[in-house]
């Protein structure tokens, strides 16, 4: 609350009105590294969004793939001599460059989608558990215990059996696996926070519960939550890769980065490195950029680092 009222020192506030958003932007821009991360991430996101228009090949169309072009080295030409596979091809003759662009789309949707949904569900339940206490707390926390003990592979198998195989269902499976982490972490922090004076003050003012939860309690639980959330995007992408590795991930004809990596995994020993190396690099760059942004975001948003 006090954050918004205080003017940031050194800001020329003559003709511009200081708003929380502008302040946020200027603070964010302080870190060159975070800006670089943001730029890279935007570039990657654009690449993913525009893939159908800029990719040399539609890697999801079986009609354009030819196994006779399979496992070609980077820089090879295709059988009809009409295109060059700059990053080589996989076992199905899929152009790796196109595969990576399309795969980015799926990995970003799966990673970000599942992390955001899991975060919202988990954080809300965690806050509620800490604030309400008593039976609500016990019920939610035992649900967390139950959830955490189910191996991701079993959850994924069950969802596969009940709902069939699709990208949406992979997201659902990851949300089901991950929400409990958020709930557990948020509850831990919130338990400490709710005993602090500002919550007592808010309660004395008879503010509505949702307001206390989301306007007062939540911002103060944010730092660990953001740490977890930025990591969980990466973890969700890696989990999707692992599910694909175990044969439970996205459909094989629409590979994500993770599935490309796990397909290429089997070729690592035989020296056909490009099948999993380039998707691996793409994954790494994506995750590093998300984390550069996330790390700095956490510092900027943290009310307790504002001094």
């Amino acid at each position: 609350m006090s954050v918004a009222l205080r003017a940031a020192p050194g800001t020329p506030a003559k003709d511009r009105v200081e708003t929380p958003f502008r302040r946020f932007v200027s603070e964010f821009a302080e870190s060159k590294l975070a800006l670089l991360g943001l730029a890279v991430f935007v570039a990657i996101a654009l690449l993913a969004v525009l893939a159908p228009w800029i990719a040399p090949q539609n890697p999801y169309d079986l009609a354009v793939l030819d196994i006779m072009d399979g496992r070609l080295e980077p820089g090879s030409r295709n059988g009809d001599d009409t295109m060059t596979y700059w990053l080589g091809t996989d076992d199905q003759g899929r152009d790796m460059l196109s595969g990576i662009m399309y795969g980015l789309r799926i990995s970003l949707v799966v990673g970000a989608g599942s992390a955001v949904i899991a975060c919202i569900v988990g954080a809300s339940l965690g806050l509620l558990a800490a604030y309400a206490g008593g039976r609500t707390d016990s019920a939610i926390m035992r649900l967390v215990d139950l959830q955490l003990s189910f191996p991701a592979i079993l959850v994924a198998l069950m969802i596969l059996a009940f709902l069939g195989k699709s990208i949406t269902n992979v997201v659902i499976a990851i949300v089901v696996v991950e929400w409990a982490y958020y709930a557990r972490t948020v509850r831990g922090t919130a338990l400490v926070e709710r005993r602090r004076e500002y919550i007592e003050a808010a309660e004395c003012l008879a503010l509505p519960t949702h307001r206390i939860l989301f306007r007062h309690l939540l911002p103060n639980c944010l730092p660990p939550l953001i740490v977890i959330a930025t990591m969980q995007v990466a973890r969700a992408i890696a989990l999707e890769a692992t599910l694909s590795f175990l044969g439970l991930g996205v459909p094989i004809t629409e590979p994500s980065l993770g599935l490309l990596i796990s397909n290429g995994y089997e070729y690592m020993l035989s020296g056909k490195y490009w099948i999993s190396f380039y998707p691996g690099i793409a994954l790494l760059v994506t995750i590093v950029s998300i984390n550069l942004v996330g790390d700095h975001l956490r510092d900027v948003l943290n009310p307790r680092l504002k001094k």
Binding site: A234, I237, A238, G258, L283, L284, I287, V288
Partner: peptide, 11 residues
């Protein structure tokens, strides 16, 4: 530390 969680375990 980013490396530690961005690559799949099996790989």
């Amino acid at each position: 530390s980013i490396l530690g969680f961005s690559l799949p375990t099996f790989w």
